[in-house]
Structures are given as structure tokens and as C-alpha cells.
Nucleic acid binder design. Structure first.
Lengths: 150, 150
DNA sequence: TATTGTTATACTCTATAACTATA
DNA sequence: TATAGTTATAGAGTATAACAATA
């Protein structure tokens, strides 16, 4: 036992190490499809809806509306997303996937499946169940709800 | 079962959500002491040694030497770290904590302890043991060794 | 006035590579 | 030449706040 605790003494350290590796590898995979992880999460969130207001997306994803704007700009340039005027309120611009963007979502979802299998496939079924349950317990007890993007 | 898997269907999603929350809260805590998480990990790595070459630190932390240089610049400005000439090789500059930097490490380590307790204290002893073991299994099977900083 | 969304600014971290000095 | 380290550049993420248009 040392007076000054070691980095590796903290669960947060291991959590960050593994999480970074998983996310980094996933980022590499989706980069081959021309998008970032943040862009993927926005696209996946949009996939289940016709259109969503930036403010709603920001709340759902735990980001500021400014950050959503910047993300949307990039997806717009790539032709994956479109801004739509709102007939009821001329301040409002909804965001929606284009046909191209929509067609990309299943491809990206398959990459997410593959990445998960690659990493967590080394665990036993019981370990995977334990990990899942513990992570969801932690998320629930700390009131975490927003989509993690980085 | 849906054709396109949901974000929340992936263990990587929950891992990232929890890891981001833990790291973000820790970042807030150490920011009150004027350092970032990356700066803390470099300081902690240096704490156990008199001095280390940037190249060695880079390897230990899984960063490039360029990234180490930039980190060192910031810690130098804050008076927490010093560059030392190497008598044997005039190209080499070792990095070492100043007395001020060294005195800060126990304080930051206590914040890391507190953050870990705050997050993982809600788990049972068995759950903490399971999480620890599973994370270390994942790190080992994927050959992860470098210090995670972001 | 308040709200919607965009834009501006600034900072951290990351990655690649050019560059300087020394070996 | 090769190596040690710094510096430059660019991209992605984050946060705050100023801003224009509309309600």
C-alpha cells in the first residue's frame, strides 16, 4: 500500500483504457465509411424519425445546439443529412437523413455489431451478462441518459 | 429484434457512456487544481522517477513524442515540471517534476480516489470485483497497455 | 423579451510530418 | 545517416457566448 495511489488502482482507469480502445477501433471502422462516431450516433438517432429539431437532438445526445449545428454541417456537406424548413415556425429548421444517409445506417450498424463482437466475444456469456448489468447499474444510479459520442 | 441494431444494443455504447461520465467528472475535479487528466497521468507517471526522457514517457503513455512535448509545455508554464539537459547526450532533455509539481501529486491522487469511490461505491463488493476482473481480462486479451488519457 | 438556430472563439486531444540539433 | 526532441498543421470534440431572425 502506497501513500499515493497508483493510476492502475482505479476502476476508472481500466474503464477508460478499455472504452478508449473499443471506441478508437470503432472510429477506424466507420471512418472507412466516411463518418465519425459522433456523426454515426446522430444518424442512428435520426433513423427512427422523419425529422428532428436540433434542440431535441441536442437534449437527446447530451450536446449543445452549437455542437449539433457543426455536426449537421459536416453531414450536410457529405449529402447524408438535410435541413428542412418548418412551416409552423419560421425560426425552426428540422434535421432529417437523406436517402443516401438512410441507406448508410444499416451498414454502420453492422460495423457496430462487428466491433462489439470483436471486443466482447472474448468474454464468457456470464461475464458479458455481468458487464452489461453492472454498466447499466452505474448508468442508472448516476442518472446517465445522454448518448456518448467521444 | 430489429434489422438495424440500436445504439443501446452494444456493450461498447454503455462502456463509453459510463467511462465518459467518470472521466468528465474527474476532469472537473482536477481542473479545480489547474490540471487536465492527461497532465495528471503524465505527472503520476513521473512521480515514481527522478526524470524520464520524452520518448520513454511517450511509449509508456501510448502517445507520440509530439503530444508529450505539448503536454510538457503546458506543465512547464504552470511550474509543475522542468526540462533537464542530459550531460551524456546533448540532444536529450529529460522531464522531471518540480517540487511544486511533486507536492500536487498526492492531492490529485486523492481526487482520483474520491472520484472512483463516488462512482463505483454504488456497486456491491462482488460487482466491483467482477467489473475489475472483466475489464482487466478485456485489456489483457486485446493487449492494451498504454495509459488512457482522454 | 424569449426562443430557435447559427456562428465565433477558444481549448484539449490526436495524428502526421517537417524541422533543428546532435550523434 | 539516424536519432532526440520540438514545432507546425489539421481535424475532431467540447463549452461558452455573441448574434440574427422570428415568435
Amino acid at each position: 500500500m502506497t501513500a499515493v495511489s497508483n493510476l492502475a488502482a482505479h476502476a476508472g482507469y481500466w474503464l477508460r483504457m478499455v472504452s478508449n480502445a473499443v471506441s478508437h477501433d470503432f472510429a477506424r471502422k466507420v471512418a472507412a465509411e466516411g463518418v465519425t462516431v459522433a456523426e454515426w450516433t446522430l444518424m442512428r438517432a435520426l433513423y427512427d424519425h422523419q425529422a428532428m429539431a436540433p434542440t431535441v437532438l441536442a437534449r437527446k445526445m447530451g450536446m449543445t445546439k452549437g455542437a449539433i449545428s457543426k455536426l449537421a454541417d459536416r453531414l450536410l456537406e457529405k449529402g447524408l443529412l438535410a435541413r428542412q424548413d418548418n412551416p409552423g415556425d419560421r425560426r425552426a429548421h428540422s434535421l432529417a437523413l437523406t436517402a443516401l444517409g438512410r441507406s448508410k445506417v444499416p451498414v454502420l450498424a453492422a460495423l457496430a455489431d462487428a466491433n462489439d463482437a470483436e471486443y466482447f466475444g472474448v468474454l464468457t456469456l456470464k461475464e458479458r451478462g455481468d458487464l452489461d448489468r453492472i454498466l447499466k447499474t452505474l448508468a442508472e444510479k448516476r442518472g446517465l441518459t445522454s448518448v456518448p459520442v467521444d
